[in-house]
């Protein structure tokens, strides 16, 4: 069973804004039955050019329905300029995160939003010169490039999770690999995705549990997360570590380095005041 957050579950069980807006200003359809999910998004603007109404119809799994529902809630009240800035990560974050394999649901939401805005503004629906790379799921090079750039993807598997490209016959894996290399070579080091506080705490806990605690326990020590304030990670050392004179070296050189590596390079580790 997928590990969905309560928020995903809640939006799936009680989806907001299901349907189609009457006389919409912008409308778009992305995905297809063959791909396993599809989303039709429509919106209407008020007199101040803010999104007054947004509605969706979705064929797809629980996370696709929840992502669509979240998207319509998020963009209500936004100007189109604001709405354009909504990323797939914002959608995932709104839902408290999505399983990696389901990130493509948030990407589908972002794509539908973009196309619906283009539909209103009269911009071309398809990016010119885009070339289909994954024939199974009809994903273009532009779409892959963008997913790689915006989400800092490094492997074919990640690209598949975010765009579905490569999830079928696998013939395009080499082509995807080349796109990843090209984009990553061009791009200056991309700022890592901004984490919400909850995401940050979750990731820190995960890193502690998986990477750090086992090593400390090996030497009879342990560590406990007390609080996260901005980039300050406040911890308490336990067991053998509490009595160990070298514990601040362990904290700086091992724990902090690991957390910076796995979560965010700006983290600073602090021991809780005794």
């Amino acid at each position: 069973m997928w590990e969905y957050t309560d928020k995903v579950r809640e939006h799936f069980l009680n989806p907001r804004n299901v349907g189609e807006v009457e006389n919409p200003d912008g409308v778009a359809e992305v995905g297809s039955i063959a791909c396993g999910d599809a989303l039709k998004l429509s919106f209407k603007l008020d007199e101040n050019k803010r999104i007054k109404e947004a509605m969706f119809k979705t064929f797809g799994c629980a996370s696709a329905i929840a992502s669509s529902s979240a998207l319509t809630e998020m963009i209500k009240g936004m100007t189109l300029e604001e709405a354009k800035k909504v990323t797939n990560q914002d959608i995932a974050a709104y839902l408290g995160g999505l399983p990696q394999e389901k990130m493509h649901c948030s990407v589908m939401g972002k794509e539908a939003l973009e196309k619906a805005i283009e539909n209103y503004q009269g911009a071309p629906a398809k990016e010119p010169g885009a070339q289909i790379i994954c024939e199974c799921f009809g994903v273009t090079d532009r779409e892959i490039e963008r997913a790689v750039r915006e989400n800092n993807l490094a492997t074919v598997e990640e690209v598949t999770n975010y765009t579905k490209a490569g999830g079928g016959c696998g013939n395009c894996h080499d082509a995807i690999r080349q796109i990843i290399e090209r984009v990553r070579a061009e791009a200056k080091p991309v700022a890592p995705p901004k984490l919400t506080n909850i995401q940050k705490i979750k990731r820190i806990e995960e890193a502690l549990e998986r990477e750090i605690r086992p090593s400390l326990k090996h030497d009879g020590g342990d560590i406990e997360l007390i609080d996260v304030v901005g980039n300050r990670v406040i911890v308490a050392v336990r067991g053998a570590c509490a009595a160990c004179k070298a514990s601040d070296i362990t904290l700086k050189h091992f724990v902090e380095a690991k957390l910076r590596d796995l979560v965010s390079p700006d983290l600073i580790i602090e021991e809780v005041a005794p």
Binding site: W2, R9, F12, L13, C35, G36, D37, F59, G60, C61, A62, S63, A64, I65, E101, C136, F137, T160, K164, G167, G168
Partner: peptide, 28 residues
Amino acid sequence: EGEGILLLMNEHGICASSGSACTSGSLQ
């Protein structure tokens, strides 16, 4: 889509399974 059906049946305590892509972790 099968996953949605399974999760809504799950709300009633009904257990079954699906051949949909979404439930398998693969995309097909």
